[in-house]
Design a protein around this nucleic acid. Structure first.
Length: 293
DNA sequence: AACTCAATCAACCGCTCTCAA
DNA sequence: TTTGAGAGCGGTTGATTGAGT
């Protein structure tokens, strides 16, 4: 017995969204907030499935989205996070305010991968490409999947805390830098490379966002199952918050305007970079992992 | 100007996860 | 404990755009 489709696809529209549809969806969500996505198209008068509506909203229509290419610092952060988390795009996106997992995934596949390879870095393992590795790159998907497996394995071994993210309540709150990954070399390559462009996009400030609804945390992990219009008469106070309120505090600390003083790549020597939840900033910890526990 | 090819990115698909009944 | 609905995630596709010839 097969799984039921997420929605009745008969008569539903697919493909690119029209401005009319966008308007309907925006109007509905701004008026009613995000509720059960399954119910959204019906209530909003759209011939789309709920999944499509959710995707359109989270990836394109949300008012807190940043536009334009990722900045150099954002790219660095993506590389750093990818080296630790692998293809966990939603988790990576949760560290980049205003960016979606889809956007980051696309940017990774179209830009960053190439840049890293150009710089002699394997985008899967984040290690310098040896001549043999180069050969492996050309051997196809199987090899790639195996390498992804390696990264995933590293992720699961993330007991050694380096970077601790305050807002995350998931396993990556303690993500690690495995000693097997040579981030220093990666950083060096990045610094030497003229390839990264800076395209800073003005960040929408929290007070500029008018969304009377909760967001999905990082547009990914938290939904509002209990606050559906049709299923719950009351909405919990903590669920009514602006999307940006769930952005990582470190981003506010850095203001997202100037990453120039920030080295997203932990060094290999005396100190390691860790997020201090009390002071809301990253600190070199001299490897004192116990203090965070 | 016309054509081809590559790059980009919005959107879809199918699977997994979560949670309530 | 089981089951099913809904939401989320990651991989992939395909339409569009731009560069090169």
């Amino acid at each position: 017995m097969g799984r039921q489709p997420c929605c009745d696809k008969v008569g539903l529209k697919k493909g690119p969204w029209t401005t009319e549809e966008d308007k309907k969806l925006i109007d509905f969500i701004l008026t009613n907030g995000q509720c059960c996505w399954r119910a959204v198209p019906k209530l909003a008068g759209l011939l789309r499935c709920g999944k499509s509506c959710r995707l359109r909203w989270t990836n394109y229509l949300r008012p807190d989205l940043k536009r334009g290419l990722l900045s150099e610092s954002e790219e660095k952060l993506v590389i750093e996070l990818h080296s630790r988390l692998g293809n966990k795009w939603s988790k990576i996106a949760s560290h980049l305010p205003g960016r979606t997992d889809n956007e980051i995934k696309n940017h990774w596949n179209t830009h960053i991968k190439k840049k890293l390879r150009k710089m002699g870095i394997d985008p899967i393992t984040h290690r310098p490409i040896s001549s043999t590795d180069e050969h492996h790159h050309q051997t196809g998907q199987q090899q790639q999947q195996e390498q992804v497996g390696v990264v995933a394995g590293e992720d699961k071994r993330s007991e050694n805390i380096i970077l601790q993210c305050s807002q995350s309540q998931e396993e990556e709150k303690s993500v690690s830098v495995s000693s097997s990954f040579d981030f220093i070399e990666t950083d060096t390559f990045l610094q030497k490379s003229p390839g990264f462009c800076t395209d800073e996009v003005p960040m929408i400030q929290p007070h500029e966002i008018i969304v009377p609804c909760a967001s999905t945390a990082s547009y990914s992990s938290t939904s509002l199952p209990s606050s559906c219009l049709s299923s719950s008469p009351s909405v919990k106070a903590e669920e009514i918050q602006f999307p940006c309120m769930e952005w990582p505090d470190p981003m506010y600390f850095y203001g997202m305007d100037d990453f120039s003083q920030w080295d997203p790549i932990p060094n290999n020597g005396d100190g390691e970079l860790a997020f201090d939840p009390l002071n809301q900033l990253y600190q070199r910890t001299a490897g004192d992992q116990e203090s965070w526990n």
